[in-house]
């Protein structure tokens, strides 16, 4: 009887939820009809007639809005993935130094984390772009001929030219996220019982070997949930690109909304593309988590 009751409530809950969702969507449709906006995605195939500074695939203003959106998504993906890698590297390094025995590094990294975490990302991005990159005028900040060059033209790496907008966004996002990742790493390492440290020391294993072979494998499962949420944040934060003139999907959406007046459709596309991207990140992290669990540490 109680089992049936439970089932009944479950079904009721599902219906209530679907009903609520239905009301919301219906409301949206009625209001759209009332304001004469209506739903229409036919504009997607019309020519975009705006140009883009950066496009990883061939693009011209006579291409369709859908293609322009896709280029925007590619641009977003480009900056998200590269920031993700860079942020993880910096974050891990900072995290290790933070828990290390060297008190000088420990204080420096604590300061880094405090400053970066306590200031808004938008301001950091503006700072990187307007004060950092564009302020360098024509003299290079760091230049190793033909290999590496940072100037107001952006970053040049092995002949690969990264625009100042992309570079500023890459730096801003990576450094902002690295501070959070460092804390995740620190938390993970500190979750390993102190006894483990004492154990490998008493076995005569060197500090370095003990850290990487005994402590880190045990801390890994604790990293994953924290890292996942930081990666998701990073992906979402990338939409601040519009502030510094990088043509990510949000910036392109902004232009399209103005040209077509199709704000609701554009935001639905925007929401869906981020949902897909973040579900992908979550899925990949889930696979990593599972493989760590499987390897039996």
């Amino acid at each position: 009887m109680s089992k049936n009751k439970k089932k009944f409530f479950q079904i009721l809950l599902v219906f209530a939820f679907l009903g609520f969702l239905g009301i919301l969507i219906n409301n949206l449709i009625i209001n759209l009809a009332r304001t004469g906006l209506g739903f229409n995605f036919n504009w997607l195939t019309k020519p975009a007639s705006f140009s883009l500074a950066e496009h990883p695939l061939p693009y011209s203003p006579s291409d369709s809005y859908a293609w322009a959106l896709f280029i925007g998504w590619m641009n977003s993906l480009k900056v998200i993935i590269s920031s993700l890698v860079l942020a993880t590297c910096i974050g891990t390094l900072i995290g290790f130094l933070r828990v290390g025995k060297n008190s000088f590094f420990s204080i420096i990294t604590a300061g880094y984390i405090t400053v970066i975490r306590q200031t808004p990302l938008l301001i950091q991005l503006m700072c990187w772009y307007f004060v950092g990159f564009l302020n360098m005028r024509n003299n290079s900040f760091l230049s190793i001929s033909n290999i590496f060059n940072i100037s107001n033209k952006g970053i040049e790496l092995f002949g690969l030219n990264l625009s100042p907008e992309f570079s500023a966004l890459l730096f801003g996002l990576s450094i902002f996220s690295s501070a959070f990742i460092a804390e995740v790493i620190r938390g993970g390492i500190q979750s390993v019982p102190l006894g483990q440290w004492e154990a490998f020391r008493s076995l005569g294993i060197s500090e370095k070997q003990g850290f990487f072979k005994i402590i880190i494998p045990q801390a890994l499962p604790a990293f994953i949930p924290g890292l996942t949420s930081q990666y998701l944040n990073l992906a979402k934060n990338s939409t601040l690109a519009i502030a510094i003139g990088y043509s990510d999907i949000y910036a392109i959406n902004d232009t399209i909304i103005n040209q077509t007046g199709r704000a609701v459709e554009c935001f639905i596309i925007l929401l869906c593309s981020f949902l897909i991207l973040n579900l992908l990140i979550t899925k990949v992290m889930g696979i990593i988590d599972k493989s760590i669990m499987k390897s039996g540490i």
Binding site: L18, G22, I23, I25, N26, F39, L44, E265, I268
Partner: peptide, 17 residues
Amino acid sequence: MINRFFFGIAAFGLLLT
């Protein structure tokens, strides 16, 4: 994708309310 997916949900919403 967008046309089908979205109108699907929308029709469902209308049905319920």
